[in-house]
Design a protein around this nucleic acid. Structure first.
Lengths: 340, 340
DNA sequence: GGTCACTTCGCAAAGCTTTGCACTTTAAAA
DNA sequence: TTTTAAAGTGCAAAGCTTTGCGAAGTGACC
C-alpha cells in the first residue's frame, strides 16, 4: 500500500529542518526567514501537501463534521433539505455525515449513538415517524453538544429548530377549499406523536371554525406516512354515506395515494372531490390533474437549520430559537373552483 | 465548553493504573488479570467510553470514510443509489461523506480534491454531465486509492464500475415501440460525452436495425438533462412535417417535459405519440397516462458499487470489474398497443 | 573582548490509541 | 537462601500538527 499523503515530517526531512520550522513557514510566521519560508512553501506545493485533518482534529478537539439524521434519503423533501444543509456546511468548511433512520425509532437511537462516537460536532435531526420519547437526545443537551431539529421537532424549549408554519398553512388550505365551494372537508393526518401532525390538525380545526363549518370526526383520517396506509384511510372516507367533497393530506405521498383511490372509485377530481397536498414534491405538476399543494422552501429550510447549527457552535447555551418558515399555497387544477 | 468524551487516560487516572493497562483490559488481553479487566470494563461502561476514531485513524492510517460524489442529491435515482451505498457501508462500519457536483465539472474536481484532503479512504463517483476530461482521477488511480464509478463512467479499463445494461435496454424500448405499431421512433439523448448517452443511443440504433426501420437523423434530439432543454428538443420533434409516433428519452425528467409539451401541442398519448421513460422515478405511476419506463435497480446498484469499493480496499491492484445490472421495461399506459 | 538584543530555529508537550519491550513483583524451584 | 520463571503493569514510540519557550548564532555597542 503506497503512502498516500505527505506530512510535515516528510517535508522537514527533505529540507533538513525541523517540523516546527516547516509548520511555521507554511503559515508565514514572522519568526521564519523569507528565504526559508519560500523554500518550504515551494516544496509543499510541489509535493502536494495538505494538513492531516485527523491530527488537527485531535489537537483542536474538532472534526468539522455535522451529523444529519433523516427518516429517509429518497423523499424529495429530505434530500432537498440536506442539499441546503450541505450548502451552508461547505461554506463553513464543514462536511456532513448522513444517516437515515428509515422512520424507525431504534435506528434513530442507534444513529445518534454512532454519529456521536464518530465525534461529529453536533447533530441536525428530523425525527422518525415512530419516535415518541426523546431521551436519546439528553446526552447532547446535557453536554451542550449542538443540536438542531427541523420539520419534525421536540423539546423546542431547549433545542433550536426550524419548521414550516404548519398550523397556518393547514388553516389556509381549509379556507381555500371553503372558498371553492367545498363544505365537507376531510383531512388525512399522520402519526399523532409528530409535531407536524398536531399542528396541521390544529390548523385544520381553526380553518373549519373560520368558515363556520362543523367539525365532523368521521372526516378525519389518519395513517402512517406510507402510500398503503393512506389508501386505506382514503377508502374509509370514500365509503361514508356522504363522502367528503375535499381532502387534504399531511403530505404529498398521502395525497397521491388518495388520488389513485378516488379515480379508482370512479369519482373525478376536482369535480367530485378537491384535493390539496402538502410539501410540493416535484411531481405535483406532472400528475393529472396537477396538484394544488402547500410548498415548503425546502432548500432554505436546510440552510436555516445549518445556520442555527453554527450559531449553536458559537453560543452553545444561548436560548434556543425556533424559526418558522413561510409556506405558500400553490393552486393548480386539483382544487379548481366549482360552480356554487 | 464541557469536555465531551472520556479517554483512556481519564479511565486510567481514575483507576490509578497506566493507560496501556486500560487499553489492554478493554480488549481482554491475557496479560491483564481478571480482576483488573473487570474493574476497567465496568468503569468504561459507566463512563460511557468509546474509542476516539481520530486517534485510531491517525494510528492505523484509516478513516473508515468513503467519499461519494453525485451530480445532485434530489433526483430519486441518485438518492436511492446513495441509500444502497450507505447500507453496505454501515454494515462494514464505514460512513459516507456525500458531495454533490451540481452537474458541474469544476465542482466535481473540487469535490475530489476536498474529499481526498479529508482523508477518505476512496471515492464512489457518478460523473457530472459536463465532465469530458478525467485527469482529476489520476491521483486516485496512480496512488491506488480505491475508486468506483457508477452509471456514468469512464476509464473502465482501470476503474471498477457498475452500470445498467444501457444499450440492451434502449434496444428493447425501440422494439417495444415497433411491436406496438410505431414506425417513426424518436430518441432524445443526453450530453454526448456521457457514457449512458453513447450506449443508449447505440441501443436505439440497434433496435431500429432489428426492426428494419430506417435511421432518420431528424428523429434524434439531444439536450442537457434539464426539463427546459428537453422541452426545446421535444418541440423541435413535434414541429417536423411528419412528427414521430413514439419518443423515448434518456431519463424520466426528459420524458416528463416531453409529456407536457405533447399535451400542450394538442396531441394525445399514446394515441398520437407513445412515450417511454428511462429510470423509473416514483412518479411514473401518478402521471397521466402512467409512464412506461425502464427501471433501474437503483438501491442494488448502490449496494454493488459499495461492494466493489470494499473489494478494491482489499485488492487495490486487481483487474477492475465492470458490473452490468439488468433493467426491466415496465409497461404502463403511455405506450399502449394501438390498432395496427 | 564582553554584553545585549535580535533573528532564526528546534525541543517538547498535548491530543488519543495501540503495542513491543522492559520492568517489578511473587511464588516456585534449586 | 538464591535463582528462575511467570504474571501483571508501565514506558515509550508512532501517527501528525500546533505553539510556548528555550537555545544558538550574529551583529552592534560599550
Amino acid at each position: 500500500m503506497a503512502k498516500r499523503h505527505v506530512s510535515l515530517k516528510d517535508l522537514a526531512t527533505e529540507l533538513n529542518v525541523s517540523i516546527s520550522t516547516v509548520s511555521r513557514a507554511l503559515k508565514n510566521h514572522p519568526d521564519i526567514s523569507c528565504e526559508m519560508t519560500r523554500k518550504v512553501q515551494e516544496l509543499a506545493r510541489a509535493r502536494n501537501y495538505t494538513p492531516n485533518p485527523l491530527a488537527m482534529g485531535l489537537l483542536r478537539q474538532e472534526t468539522r463534521m455535522i451529523g444529519v439524521i433523516v427518516p429517509d434519503l429518497v423523499t424529495h423533501f429530505f434530500s432537498s433539505v440536506i442539499s441546503g444543509i450541505e450548502y451552508v456546511a461547505k461554506q463553513n468548511g464543514y462536511y456532513i455525515l448522513i444517516s437515515s433512520s428509515s422512520e424507525s425509532y431504534g435506528k434513530e437511537v442507534e444513529s445518534v449513538r454512532n454519529l456521536l462516537n464518530t465525534r461529529v460536532e453536533g447533530l441536525i435531526v428530523c425525527l422518525s415517524q415512530e419516535t415518541k420519547t426523546f431521551d436519546h437526545f439528553d446526552v447532547l443537551i446535557n453536554n451542550e453538544i449542538p443540536l438542531v431539529f427541523f420539520d419534525r421537532v421536540c423539546r423546542t424549549d431547549q433545542v433550536p429548530s426550524v419548521v414550516a408554519d404548519n398550523a397556518e398553512a393547514a388553516r389556509q388550505v381549509t379556507r381555500h377549499f371553503y372558498e371553492n365551494g367545498c363544505r365537507r372537508i376531510a383531512y388525512i393526518n399522520g402519526p399523532e406523536q409528530l409535531s407536524i401532525s398536531k399542528l396541521r390538525y390544529e390548523g385544520y380545526l381553526q380553518g373549519l371554525k373560520d368558515c363556520n363549518l362543523p367539525f365532523e370526526p368521521e372526516l378525519v383520517g389518519s395513517c402512517n406516512l406510507s402510500p398503503e396506509d393512506a389508501s386505506v384511510a382514503t377508502r374509509k372516507l370514500l365509503r361514508l354515506k356522504n363522502h367528503p367533497d375535499a381532502i387534504f393530506g399531511i403530505n404529498d405521498t398521502v395525497i397521491f395515494a388518495a388520488m389513485r383511490e378516488i379515480k379508482q372509485f370512479g369519482l373525478t377530481i376536482p369535480t367530485d372531490i378537491s384535493l390539496v397536498g402538502f410539501t410540493g414534491e416535484f411531481h405535483s405538476t406532472v400528475v393529472e390533474p396537477s396538484l394544488t399543494s402547500i410548498t415548503h422552501p425546502t432548500f432554505e429550510m436546510g440552510k436555516e437549520a445549518a445556520r442555527l447549527f453554527f450559531e449553536r457552535i458559537q453560543h452553545p447555551t444561548a436560548p434556543p430559537q425556533q424559526i418558522e418558515m413561510k409556506t405558500s399555497l400553490v393552486i393548480r387544477n386539483s382544487s379548481k373552483k366549482k360552480a356554487l
